[in-house]
C-alpha cells in the first residue's frame, strides 16, 4: 500500500515537472487578455463565498487549506 502511494506521488511529481517544462511556450500577449481580465476569471473570483465555505468545511471535516492557508481561528475542531 505504502509502495503504491509512493509510486503515485512519483508519477504526480513527474507530471508536474513535465508541465513546468512546457510552461515557457504558454501564455498570451498583453492585448489578448480580454477574457482573463473578467472578474469571473480571477483566481479567487468569490472570496466571500470562499471564506464562508472554508469556515463551514473546517468545522465539519478534518482537512483544510490547499487553496490558501489551512488556518484555524475557530474553536470548532
Amino acid at each position: 500500500m505504502k509502495y503504491r502511494i509512493e509510486k503515485y506521488r512519483l508519477i504526480l511529481l513527474l507530471t508536474v515537472i513535465a508541465t513546468v517544462g512546457g510552461c515557457s511556450s504558454m501564455g498570451v500577449d498583453p492585448w489578448d487578455r480580454d477574457l482573463l481580465a473578467k472578474s469571473s476569471m480571477a483566481i479567487n473570483s468569490s472570496p466571500l463565498d470562499q471564506s464562508i465555505d472554508d469556515h463551514i468545511y473546517f468545522s465539519k471535516e478534518a482537512a483544510s487549506g490547499g487553496r490558501s492557508f489551512a488556518g484555524g481561528g475557530c474553536g470548532c475542531n
Binding site: V16, V20, C23, M26, G27, V28, D32, R33, D34, L35, L36, M41, I43, S64, G65, G66, R67, S68, F69, A70
Partner: peptide, 23 residues
C-alpha cells in the same frame, strides 16, 4: 504554515494554479 503557489496562464481562455501547503 508554508504555502507555495504557481499560477499559469495557458492561453487566452485558460489558466491554472498549483499549490503545495505544509501546516
Amino acid at each position: 504554515e508554508f504555502l507555495l503557489g504557481w499560477t499559469q496562464v495557458v492561453n487566452r481562455s485558460t489558466l491554472m494554479q498549483f499549490n503545495y501547503g505544509y501546516a
